[in-house]
Design a protein around this nucleic acid. Sequence first.
RNA 1: GCGCCCGUAGCUCAACGGAUAGAGCGCUGGGCUUCGGACCCAGAGGUUGCAGGUUCGAAUCCUGUCGGGCGCGCCA
Length: 558
Amino acid sequence: MPNLARDLIIAKLEKALEDARAQQRMPLETMPAVEVERPTKPENGDFATSLPLRLARSTRVAPMEIARTLTELMPVDEVVERVWAAPPGFVNFNLRQEWLQGQVLEIIQAGESYGAIKAKNPQKIMVEFVSVNPTGPIHVGHTRGAVLGSVLASILEAAGHSVTREYYLNDAGTQMDLFYASVYARYMEALGRDAQLPAGGYQGDYVIELARQVLDQEGERYASLEREEALKLLGDTARERMVNLIREDLLRLGVDFHVWFQESLLYESGEYRETLDLLGEGGHLAHREGALWFTSAALGDDRDNVVVRSSGAPTYFASDMAYHHNKFVKRGFDKVINIWGADHQGHVSRLKAAVGAMGVDPERLDVIIAQMVTLKRGREVVKASKRSGDFVTLRELVDEVGPDACRYFFLARAPGTQMDFDLKLAAKESSENPVYYIQYAHARIAGVLAKAKEQDIDWAKADVSLLVDAHELNLIRKMLQLPELLEKIAATQEPHHLPHYALELATAFHWFYENCRVLSSDPADRGQTLARLKLLEAAQLVLARTLGLMGMTAPARM
RNA sequence: GCGCCCGUAGCUCAACGGAUAGAGCGCUGGGCUUCGGACCCAGAGGUUGCAGGUUCGAAUCCUGUCGGGCGCGCCA
């Protein structure tokens, strides 16, 4: 891809500023950062900058005068057709029609890589997400983070970074022990033995099913073992089965990982020990009340945190520190993005403190907190609690709503806002969901292109300069926004803009389709037909690309 | 009590400190003899919770306040 129009305009502005200073037409002490925006109103141009308004104070020059000076210093070229000053102090830019037309060919040439950007500083990035304990199936609350993480990872890749998608598997620790004991109790129960769920054990029906499944497939062998031995061996199989279930459920949603990182490895490899030693040497650990503490209060956190309990068992936080040591120091990620639920929000500061104490710049760790999802059936709130067993699983959700709608729905909301998910509504309205509106645009294009092929129309040599209708140019303009958008999302880590863009793109297409007939039997329209087929080919590509980045299907028929 | 997040149209949500705060759903009224009507067009609907402040300009930043969510364990 050539440079983005936006970047060309920024370069133009920067040059104009330098010229203005050199010619002493503007008293600039330092060069300001140049930013351009896309005006909401088309009459305000394809691009605009409010630079004159920002510079008015420091230069003590009237905004409109600055705007006019800059305008004079920016001649039109092959990309920009018109530059003008607009009150109260904007400079607006319009793109040249010929350039827009040419972009159709550029998009087709870029093909499936359209929108991909060469990052100015490509980074090795890890996105760690979901990471639910394998003590039960994934439920609705985790789905948001799953979608968010997978799409963010795709977009970061498109923006030129090298991305690892990782699931942190907590296969050690007290919750797992509790889970094993719960499965064991259900297993014995299934054999008719007297068994009691441990205090605070996992009560969900899935534990009963799991135990029964093990019994069916592996027999009674665990019952004859010593309890401790049985817990270990039965635990192993139960955990594996649970992890597989989680993996399958996520795959149904279209979420996949490069790495399933086992917590237990941190202990086996000695990295846990190594991390503690490192922190100890730095003076960040203290023995107190029989336990070992990370002295995070001294680093600005609200309080110190226990790393090793008085029982000698490490806390979850201890392994998390070792895990992040592994991410940054052992594996050398430039940036790590963790996606957590709102209930983990209190852990951000202490983990950042720990990362800093390891000698890693805490800025390299980003934690995105996805706020709670309230699940509803109509007006009724559905409680989701894994231990009480009363929850809706990801699998049930995907079965009911479908993966595409599910992804779109979770993706379209900014992570920081709490959201309601009405199961009833989602299922009922699925045929009028924006998802279908977007996919329908893709299917419509596929239909026209297929028809053109049936008629042996070859549009390879179409003349794009015939694309002069406002609807056509509008569609091209919209297609050209994708690369900028991806760059922005990669920088702000807010993928929710993508579904909104997809909707706008689909609207631009439907509007075009309504107003511009593509296939015409009139020989006089031949040139226009070919050009429009070319445009559709590009539009289909951009739609498919956008849907693909969201992990959604781009159907040729619906 | 302290900390983090969120209050925008009837509902679900957008809006990079910028120009008249926008979409979808729902509601009202229109639109195909031709490529897929799962479409298009128009309209109604807003004191951006409230009050101050900063700024040429605030839904956005700051302070306070009201309302909601989540945290504040030798659980994860």
